[in-house]
Design a protein around this nucleic acid. Structure first.
Length: 270
DNA sequence: ATCCAGGAGTGAC
DNA sequence: GTCACTCCTGGA
C-alpha cells in the first residue's frame, strides 16, 4: 500500500479523459487500472491517493505510468490569462495527467478507436484481452488478463477479431500485429525516435492516419507536442479559435492542452 | 429511418 | 492535393 499527497492529480478526471481504455471506476472514488500485464486498485480522497501495490511496484512502474514526476502546475500557469475558454477547461481538468502507456497497447487501442466510441472501444479491448491476453492473478486474488502481445494477436484470424466486435478495424489490427511480430516493424526503434520520425513511421502502419498517429505519440511516446485533432477537438477549435489555435505560444505542451479541451468538451456535451 | 461515434483506405479527378 | 465513397456496429 502506497499513500501519497499529489497536487494536480485526479483519478476520476484521468479515467474520464479517455486516454486509457482499461481504467474503470469501481465506486465513486475507487478505480481499477490494467496496464500492460499489471493490475492496480487506487483510491482518491482529496489530494490523497492510495495505490494498492508494493512500494517497489509503485516506484518502478506506477509512478512513471501516472507521470507523477512532472509538475502540471507549470502547464496551467502558462495559459494565457485572457483565454478564458482554455483557462476554464484547464481548471476543470487540472487533475489530468498524460499517462505513460505502452506503445504496442496504444497502437492497437487507437486503431480500434477510429469511428468508434469510448464505451465500445473498452468492450473491444476487454474482449481481445480475454481471448488473447495471458490470464493473471493480482495479489488480492483478482483475475484479469494482460494486454495481448503482438505475437498472440498475429495468431488470430480476421474473422476471430471481428468476433471481438472490431468490425472493419480487424484487418488493421491483424496486419499490424503480423508486422510487429515478424520484426518488420521494430517498436524499440520507434520508441527512440524523435516525434516527427516516430509519427512518420507510425503513419506507415495499415489503419494509422494522422489523428491515430498523434494519439499514439502523445499517450505512448509522451510527446507532449502532439496535438491529436478528432471531430470533437476540431469543432471546439472552430468555435473558440476561429483564427487558429495559438500552437506557437504553447509549443511543447499542446498535448496537455488538448486533453484539457477534450475533457471539457466531453463533460459539457451532456 | 438516417446519421454518426475520438478515422482511414481507396480510387477518381 | 482534395474530394466522395466505403467500411462494422449500435444507439439516438
Amino acid at each position: 500500500m502506497v499513500v501519497k499527497e499529489i497536487p494536480y492529480f485526479d483519478l476520476s478526471e484521468i479515467c474520464d479523459s479517455g486516454q486509457c481504455f482499461r481504467m474503470e471506476r469501481i465506486t465513486e472514488n475507487e478505480f481499477q487500472i490494467r496496464a500492460e500485464d499489471k493490475y492496480l486498485r487506487a483510491t482518491q480522497e482529496g489530494e490523497t491517493v492510495r495505490f494498492d501495490c508494493s512500494e517497489e511496484e509503485f516506484e518502478t512502474f506506477w509512478k512513471h505510468y501516472f507521470d507523477l514526476e512532472r509538475d502540471y502546475g507549470i502547464y496551467i500557469e502558462a495559459i494565457d490569462p485572457e483565454d478564458t475558454y482554455l483557462k476554464t477547461a484547464a481548471e476543470l481538468g487540472s487533475g489530468i495527467r498524460i499517462l505513460n502507456q505502452d506503445l504496442w497497447e496504444m497502437i492497437v487501442s487507437f486503431l480500434i478507436s477510429q469511428q468508434n466510441n469510448i464505451f465500445r472501444i473498452r468492450k473491444c479491448i476487454d474482449r481481445i484481452s480475454r481471448r488473447y491476453g495471458e490470464e493473471k492473478r493480482a495479489a488480492d486474488g483478482t483475475v484479469y488478463h494482460a494486454f495481448p502481445t503482438a505475437e498472440a494477436l498475429s495468431q488470430a484470424t480476421e474473422e476471430e477479431l471481428r468476433d471481438c466486435n472490431l468490425g472493419y478495424r480487424a484487418k488493421y489490427v491483424r496486419d499490424t500485429a503480423l508486422r510487429v511480430a515478424s520484426g518488420e516493424v521494430d517498436l524499440a526503434v520507434i520508441r527512440k525516435m524523435t516525434y516527427p520520425e516516430a509519427r512518420e513511421e507510425l503513419l506507415k502502419l495499415y489503419g494509422v492516419g494522422v489523428k491515430v498517429a498523434d494519439c499514439i505519440c502523445l499517450m505512448a511516446l509522451h510527446e507532449l507536442s502532439a496535438f491529436p485533432v478528432d471531430t470533437h477537438i476540431r469543432q471546439a477549435l472552430e468555435k473558440h479559435y476561429p483564427g487558429g489555435f495559438p500552437a506557437k505560444r504553447y509549443g511543447g505542451m499542446e498535448g496537455v492542452l488538448q486533453q484539457y479541451i477534450f475533457y471539457y468538451e466531453l463533460i459539457h456535451k451532456e
